[in-house]
């Protein structure tokens, strides 16, 4: 565990989570959610959980973003809040 990395990633995590939930354009919200997933992957790699980090890098930053975008493009892009 490397403390400066830890603190930087954790602060960015909160920022990314809050922004992803407050952007009104759902497509950009999905992209920021991908950034959130990748930051979590970095945090796990830094904690020594390489298998979990690998899974999160493929699932969280890859597949789940594509699923979100597939749904958003088939429904509505704007959100009221």
């Amino acid at each position: 565990m490397i403390l400066p990395f830890d603190i930087i990633i954790l602060v960015f995590l909160i920022v990314a989570a809050v922004i992803a939930l407050n952007v009104k354009d759902l497509l950009s919200s999905a992209m920021i959610f991908a950034i959130y997933g990748f930051l979590i992957c970095l945090l796990w790699a830094e904690m020594g959980a390489v298998d979990v980090a690998f899974t999160e890098a493929t699932v969280g930053a890859g597949i789940s973003t594509v699923l979100f975008i597939a749904t958003i493009l088939n429904t509505r892009r704007r959100s009221s809040d």
Partner: peptide, 14 residues
């Protein structure tokens, strides 16, 4: 090494 069925399966799906 790190890896296995879950990760590889997700990469193939990707």
């Amino acid at each position: 090494s790190p890896g296995g069925g879950f990760q590889g399966g997700v990469i193939l799906a990707a």
